[in-house]
Nucleic acid binder design. Structure first.
Lengths: 231, 231
DNA sequence: CGCTGTGTTGATTTTTTTCAATCCCCGTGG
DNA sequence: CCACGGGGATTGAAAAAAATCAACACAGCG
């Protein structure tokens, strides 16, 4: 459904046309015919699965070099929209499929990427099913930081780096990711601040004061723990 | 991580040795070296991701013809155990990898299976994040029935079929699947019974009295809705 | 500079969990 | 064949967590 890194099949995007997205703009509507695949150049996107009655579950956030467009059937089963302004490379799905059919190494790389998506979903399911609101929030902050570190090519186990965190998505988006209400997200952040784990700066940025403490709260071994390397 | 159907790559299991499992017996321990892959012959298995402090998230239940053993790295990241007595076909992981590398059709089938696993996980994440306890329970019952119908080769949209449901797993297993406590599962079932949607027979079997009503509660379009076909 | 919509905080209600007390299915052994 | 014992299951009461309802704050924008 999304998410990648430096993989063989990405060359289909090498000289692909680019598309610019304004914040909030929808790239893929759930239910659309799945004719295109995308690779993020810049900005942050959000993948979500809409329900029938307006509920939605946000599944992941996408960063530069992530891939989106993976689907089993002929239709996308998820929505993708821009969180910040963004640009994406656009290729026909058929081009990717040809590429994969022709080149076993590319196919293997694609499969490996699919595994990564899968593991992220398992982590999300674990959070949603087993963790409290505050724990989920801690995991979320570490997850965001981890993704930023990866994007920046920095080591993910350096607790001194990247203590200032930009949070470009709305509280509602975070709530829909963590299976909470937006008020609970606000309260949770306030509580983490009271506990000395972070300091809220502006609405969409904060300082992580105690990354080790956040890890303890999150139940280590998940996002951004030194014990766990990507790939 | 698991789950399949009638796919090309399954022939690696054709003349593979079988292993019998007693109820509760563990087939894969999270953290083990991932040297083998399995295909279910008979019985029901359960896949879960353990946390650090004893919490665990059950990710799926496996039925005959389902595949398990999929992993990104060299180690399994999940536990698989038998719910009922079961028998599984056992093949070396290397044999499967050779098979996939040699045969593009098999590799494509394998990728398709991975997509199905992914979609199931997305459905689970949606349930965990967005649905109430009672809704999750309704979805779970429909999901179980759906899997039984598939296993039996029956049409999944026949509301008259398979109204009696065997529930071989414990309330704790259900709770860990749905992100609830076992008491909440009990209460939820009692409530669905009071609402006339089902009748509890023995502890591990019940009658679905109003499948349409369960669908409405679950928010249709998910497991076992006529609108949604497998694959 | 006021408007608008997101975000925060407070009070209250609802849902789920926790703690605790039986219950009863089921296998065992008499 | 039936009584017995044990462990999962159910139910109840109380506590905790999260959602809901409501008021207000505040940033960004016309």
């Amino acid at each position: 459904m999304n998410e990648a890194a430096d993989d063989a099949f990405l060359d289909v995007f090498a000289r692909a046309p680019r598309r610019a997205l304004a914040p909030g703009e929808v790239l893929i509507h759930a239910g659309d015919a799945a004719t295109q695949v995308f690779n993020i150049d810049t900005g942050m996107l959000m993948v979500s699965r809409p329900g029938l009655d307006g509920r939605r579950q946000v599944l992941s956030f996408l960063f530069p070099d992530n891939f989106v467009g993976l689907t089993a059937s002929g239709r996308y089963s998820f929505t993708v929209e821009a969180v910040t302004g963004a640009t994406v490379a656009v290729a026909p799905r058929a081009a990717l499929e040809r590429r994969l059919a022709r080149d076993p190494a590319a196919e293997r790389a694609f499969l490996a990427m699919t595994y990564r998506v899968l593991e992220n979903l398992v982590d999300l399911a674990f959070s949603l099913g087993q963790r409290s609101a505050r724990e989920r929030l801690a995991v979320f902050l570490l997850y965001l930081r981890h993704r930023y570190l990866l994007s920046a090519g920095l080591p993910v186990d350096d607790d001194a780096a990247m203590r200032r965190l930009e949070i470009p998505m709305s509280r509602q988006d975070i709530a829909d990711f963590l299976g909470l209400k937006k008020e609970t997200v606000s309260r949770g952040l306030a509580e983490l601040e009271r506990a000395g784990l972070l300091r809220r700066d502006r609405r969409h940025a904060l300082q992580l004061l105690d990354i080790e403490g956040l890890r303890r709260l999150a139940g280590v071994l998940d996002f951004a723990s030194p014990a766990r390397r990507p790939g």
